[in-house]
Design a protein around this nucleic acid. Structure first.
Lengths: 143, 143
DNA sequence: GTTCATAGTCAGATTATCTGACTACATTCG
DNA sequence: CGAATGTAGTCAGATAATCTGACTATGAAC
């Protein structure tokens, strides 16, 4: 029970999230964990609200609430979806790009620490196993 | 970025949590994710509220709020801590034990599915890497 | 060109979480 | 011993994140 794989992943994920959020906050970006979980799923060309909601596994209303905040703070912008007048695309704005760069740098740093602790071989095995696991744990695995 | 190890762990953890919570709910136990995250840290001899809070990384107040609910629903009980009159131990009660058994069975099942998908070798490597990672991502690693 | 489906919003309620202030007991040390 | 300081937990109030249900506007299908 103490060695439940799900719980172990929770622990490591939480450590990563904390590191990233702390660094992003220290760089002057006031983003909450819930906002970040939406933000991180926005694609390069923008993503629809409903799609963000589905991927983050929250309702459209919740996603909308969080995107409103991100938009007000200047991290994202909403633009019309040229292919569907009902929809709008959520796109990363300039400030969001800056915050994203800070986040990406910390992810790289933390992963390097993990690799240093585990050794390159085990880190590669971890990545491999997690990537394969995604095939059965993520309904969005093929995007 | 799409292959951030932290995010991959989040995905797998979320899938595990959902499976467990759904099965527990289907068995008639009305436990929320937040309650479960506290509940799962209660030791066999009972655990203090402050310790549960620290391990779950929430404030004592939040932990107290959740334990209140678990207690009202009959999943846990609070007993005096014989070694300190200020403290009380949160212990798993009969209904909690029953719910915990359902949860443990689902964890076993999901892990078996993962092992089937990855193969025994890769599943063992995954466990090994996660266990080692815990040494640097969990301040409570030595309990 | 109605009828049904989809994208998103509005409104209201609930749940989980925090900070700050407080009480009671424990520990320390002069 | 007894005052000063620290620790376990609770109370009160605020805020953040989430949900369900009802609604509008646009697109798709027949």
């Amino acid at each position: 029970m103490a060695l439940n794989a799900g719980l172990l992943m929770f622990t490591a994920h939480r450590a990563m999230e904390r590191r990233v959020l702390d660094a992003v906050a220290a760089a002057g970006f006031d983003i909450t964990a819930a906002q970040a979980r939406i933000f991180q799923r926005i694609g390069p060309a923008g993503t629809r609200l409903g799609e963000l909601a589905e991927q983050a596994q929250v309702t459209k209303q919740t996603a909308g609430f969080l995107v409103d905040q991100l938009e007000r703070a200047g991290y994202v912008e909403r633009v019309p979806d040229p292919t569907d007048a009902r929809a709008r695309l959520v796109r990363i704005a300039e400030r969001g790009r800056a915050a994203g760069e800070v986040a990406a740098a910390v992810v790289t740093e933390v992963e390097a620490e993990w690799a240093a602790h585990l050794g390159a071989r085990r880190m590669a095995q971890l990545r491999d196993a997690l990537g394969r696991l995604r095939e059965i744990t993520d309904p969005w695995a093929g995007e």
